[in-house]
Structures are given as structure tokens and as C-alpha cells.
Amino acid sequence: MTAPPPSVAFLGLGLMGAPMAARVAAAGLPLAIWNRSLDKAAALAGPAMRAASAPADAAAGADIIALCLLDAAAVEQVLFAPDGALAGAGPDALIVDFSTIGVAATRDLAARAGRAWVDAPVSGGVAGAMAGSLTIFCGGDAADIGRARPLLDAVAAHVTAMGALGAGQATKLCNQIIVANTLLALAEAVAAGHALGLDVSRLPGALAGGFADSPPLRQFGAAMVSDAEPTPRGRIATMAKDVEAAAEALAGTDMPLLSAARTLYRQALALGLGPADLARLPRLYAKTGED
């Protein structure tokens, strides 16, 4: 007899969380959803997704509590507040954290929660979330990762168990070092194209298929060279947060590219670009050049 699919409480419906929750519902897993702005959950609710009034309400009866939140402070609040998920969760509920919060915070929060926890930060952006083709890096007990597989398979095409609790976060920090620097390289290439007198609108297509091609180029290149408002893919402030987390975790280790990226993302924040989409990173070079 086939076991019924696990029920899921999905907490956090931002740029990544909303399409991921939709993929979970499409996979047929019983689903309750919650977001800090309740109207967002209400707008997504339907026969396959029950909108909950609080994290505790969403977690009641759930086999898996899935978190997709901005940072460690948000994870702590959503879990441990008086109406937080742990107030409503059963003792055997598994926490699966898709957020990027760093190794130390993951281990600390998991110890405080005192229950099974899988750290499962994701890569692939909004496009990957919408397509259910994300890449996920998992840390935690192998049996717990196995319990989470129906949820993971609903949102991802590539799942790798990286080791003990926190290993998923460590892998995501390595991922973000690559992505953060790649996005800066793309922005710098656009600035170089302007300086060299190119029609930069042709640059992304010209680079496609060569060694400079990459998923970031395909997802952000056209928007970087356009004045049109970009489709939201991720905020500069969020990437800056991840770069800071990587730099803090690697303090005392010589990481010149990470150090340079940290400086540039801090400059972007100082210039007021934090709320802007990552496709607006070329503005960092334009504004720096004006000063």
C-alpha cells in the first residue's frame, strides 16, 4: 500500500516561496501556506492551498514545515514567536529550511528547536522556482533528507546531500561566491561595452554559446542592457546579505574575490541600490563613475 504524501506547511511566499509553494501544490502534497503579509497568502489560496492565519495555524498537523524566508532573524521569529510554527507543530514534524541563513545560525536554531531539521538552501532563481527545476544543497541526517524527498522533488531537479546539518548552507555560500562575482562581472562587462562604444543591447546575444555564457547571463543579461523595468528576480540587498554571510563565515581566510565582491555590494547599498533588482547592478558602475 502506497503511503500518503506528507502534509506541508509552507511559510514565506516571496519571489521564491510563492512559485515553490505552487509547485508543491501541483505535486499533490496537502499544503497550508502562510506569509507575513496575509493578503499574499490569501491571493494564492485555493482548493490545493489553505491560507493560514499564523505560522502555528499552518504547522498544525503538518508532517513537514518548509521555510523560505529572508534571513536568520525571520526564521527565528517564524519558528519561536508565541504564534510561531513550533507552537502548533507536532513533535515529529520535520523542519526543512530553504532559506539562506548561514552555517552557525542553522545549527543554533536547530538546536533550539530540538527536532529534526534539514537545511536545504536553493539555487536557480525565480525561473527555476517557477519551473520546479531548482538545485538544492542539503545538510542533515540522511533519514531526514529521505523524509523530505517528496517536498524536495516537487521543487527541484537536482538535490545533493552534502553532509551533516549546516553542510547545505556551507555549499550555498560557495554557490553565492560564484553567483555574486558572476553578476558583478556581467555588470562590469556592460559598463565596459558602453566605454568601448558598443551597442550593448547586442552584447547578451553575442556572448550566448561562448565561454562567457552562463545561467546568470541568460537570466539577467537582457535586463541589464535595457532601460525597461526588469521582471523581479532578486534584490541587490539580498545578494549583499549572502556575500556578508560568506565573508563572515570565512573570516581569516584569504578570499580576494569575495573581499572585492563585498566591497562592491556595500557600495551598491550605499548608493541606494539595495531594493533594486540584480539586473540593475550596472548602475553601480555608472554612479561610481559619476562621483
Rank of each mutant, 00 (worst) to 15 (best):
A3T: 15
P5A: 11
L11Q: 02
G14Q: 06
G14T: 10
M20S: 06
L29R: 06
P30W: 05
R36T: 05
K40V: 13
A42E: 14
G46H: 09
M49G: 09
A51F: 04
G61E: 12
L67A: 10
L69N: 11
A73F: 01
A73H: 08
A74I: 01
L79D: 11
A87R: 12
G90Q: 12
D92K: 15
I95K: 07
V96D: 09
T100A: 14
V103M: 04
A104Q: 14
R107D: 01
L109S: 03
R112Y: 04
W117D: 01
D119H: 06
A120D: 02
P121E: 05
S123C: 06
S123D: 04
G128R: 02
A131V: 00
I136Y: 01
G139M: 03
D141I: 00
D144Q: 13
I145M: 04
L152M: 03
M162P: 01
L165G: 07
N175V: 14
V179T: 13
A180N: 10
N181H: 12
L183A: 12
L184C: 12
V190C: 13
A192P: 00
P204D: 13
G205L: 09
G205Y: 07
A212L: 15
P215G: 07
L217Y: 04
A222C: 02
M224V: 11
V225R: 09
S226V: 08
D227R: 14
A228N: 12
E229G: 04
T231M: 12
R233S: 12
A240M: 09
A245G: 00
L250H: 08
G252Y: 08
P256Y: 07
L258D: 04
A261G: 11
A261K: 09
L264E: 10
Q267I: 00
A270V: 02
L271I: 08
L271W: 08
L271V: 06
P275M: 09
L284H: 13
